[in-house]
Computed example of a mutant assay.
Amino acid sequence: MNTPTIQSLIQLRRYLHQYPEISGEESKTAQKIHELFQELDVDKFYTGLGKTGLAYVFEGSEPGPTSLFRCELDGLPIQENNPDISHSSKISGTSHVCGHDGHMAIITGLGTLLSEQKPSKGRVVLLFQPAEETGEGAEAVIADPRFTEIHPDYAFALHNLPGYEMHQIVLKEGAFAAASVGISIHLKGWNSHSAHPEAGKSPAKAMSALVLGLEKLPESIEEFSLVTVIHAKLGEIAFGTTPGEAVVMATLRGFTNEVRDLLVERARGLAEALAAQHSLGLEITLTESFAATHNDPEATAIGRKAADDLTMNTFEAKQPFRWSEDFGLFSTHTKTLLFGLGSGLQQPQLHEPSFDFPDEIIETGVSMFKKIIDLIHE
């Protein structure tokens, strides 16, 4: 890409970094992106897709497959702490410390190239997806009736990966990122005076056993699984009163949707048994559910060839990543490839308050996606 185009993408990335919006509230971000795409030669577009999402369609002159390239609109409810940059977040308590600002810049750059040179055959769809961080955006986009008009034969996405050499392409066929879900378990007894605890029904013992029991659940599952207790609360701060309620929250992970669901089943069984043992009421809720991301062999082969043709430095991952990506839901609907783009060995980890997407890898991401398009649509 020419220098003026790269500089404009860097400026866009830094602008988006200053004005992040949390999941489901990305209206201003979407408006900014749409203003840019209105200047491009787009054949069809969709706004408000899955609430705030955007999709831009570039048509080829001959029939052919449809490929989709996705990025994310949302930021995180994390206070940025990075005094070394001039483009830090202007929105208190919200930041782009996952790199979605950079991913949007990459897809915008791809749109600029497609505007100048349409695919020879088929269609290319550029999707700006909302609410990735909460695991709700992909489902909302796919459930939107208009998505049937652009249902792709292939879907591609990338995620920057700290801890890998800058510009390195990280590939893995099959399971790439974990399935996960958040579980909240509420135990309900009743209060009494702390001088007469026998008159109440404290969930303290059940809560303690629940925390320990949840973290031991993976021991009974042969495949990789992980339970991380992220929050626990017992009663209120009142020294004259025994606790009447407790809540335990945990994240359940597995490399397949089946393992994630098995963890949910066993966590539910553990909670029900403890509630019954201690004569407590019970309420269980699930939230932020992410499907496993599964890279299709054909789509992976296309990505691998693209990297080879560009003489990229590639790394073949041996194990799936433990984190989850909302892109995983597309894996259940079409042939997908999610690959990693190294963002530096010394780069702070994703979601750390000092993370800032490196502008140097914007062009690398655009080049990879453009080469994939050439392989599919030329």
Rank of each mutant, 00 (worst) to 15 (best):
M1E: 05
R14D: 00
E21T: 06
I22L: 11
I33Y: 03
I33E: 08
L49K: 03
F58C: 07
E59C: 08
G60C: 04
G60K: 04
S61W: 00
S61N: 11
S67N: 02
S67H: 06
P77T: 13
I78S: 10
E80I: 09
N81K: 15
H87S: 10
S92P: 01
H100Y: 04
H100D: 10
D101W: 00
L110S: 05
L114Q: 08
S120R: 15
K121M: 09
E132C: 10
A140Q: 12
I142E: 07
F147R: 07
A155Q: 10
N160Y: 04
L161Y: 10
L171S: 01
F176W: 12
A177Y: 05
A177K: 10
G182T: 14
S184A: 15
K188G: 00
A204Q: 12
M207V: 00
L210K: 01
E222F: 03
S225V: 04
L234P: 10
I237E: 14
T242G: 03
M249Y: 02
A250Y: 04
E265W: 00
A267L: 09
A271S: 14
A276D: 02
H278W: 11
E283W: 00
D296W: 07
E298K: 14
D308C: 08
D309L: 13
D309F: 10
T311W: 07
Q319P: 00
W323I: 06
S331I: 01
T336W: 01
G342A: 05
E352R: 15
P353T: 06
K370R: 13
K371S: 03
E378G: 12
